[in-house]
Amino acid sequence: MQLDAFCDWVQNTAVGAAMGQSAYLFPLVESLHVLAIAVMMGTIAFVDLRLMGLSNRDLPVSRTLREMLPYTVGSFIASVITGTLLWTSHAMQYLQTTAFVAKMVLMAAAGLNILIFHGVIQRSMSQWDLGKVPLRARLAGCTSLLLWVAVVACGRWIGFSAAGI
């Protein structure tokens, strides 16, 4: 199968081989991955909790987004880069791990939620920047928080269930 060949190639590139064999490279990249996730998850939670009306109600929603988004985006990019590096160490085994696949699917769902929020819900933001947040925006915040919590949980489960690593 082509996927097999591709994963085989990935694992045998200089990067994949180094990630798989070096005793300290994997933990180092993993630590950076966790750090990036912490910044990402924390800033996402602040936005979502603001949308749900549970925290920082005195801070306009637009201001909250403006303050958090650069850190969320930056740390997301860092998470993806470090995550991809981790994946190259055992490319095929990860794809055969349920928690890994679930994590990717949940991230796609979270991405879709982001698109709906920024593309549709956010358009009327000026009307509820400081007042009562409409239900659809609160739901988007709640959905985002639940999905990202599930992403983190799946990420942690990979370490306990990855086949043959």
Partner: peptide, 25 residues
């Protein structure tokens, strides 16, 4: 009980995410 440690670690990660983001800001 196989799920306890990963579940508690997940809560631990979520907790320090909030702390790390807060101190960073």
């Amino acid at each position: 009980v196989s799920w306890i440690i990963p579940a508690v670690q997940t809560i631990h990660i979520l907790g320090f995410s909030a702390v790390v983001a807060a101190v960073m800001l």
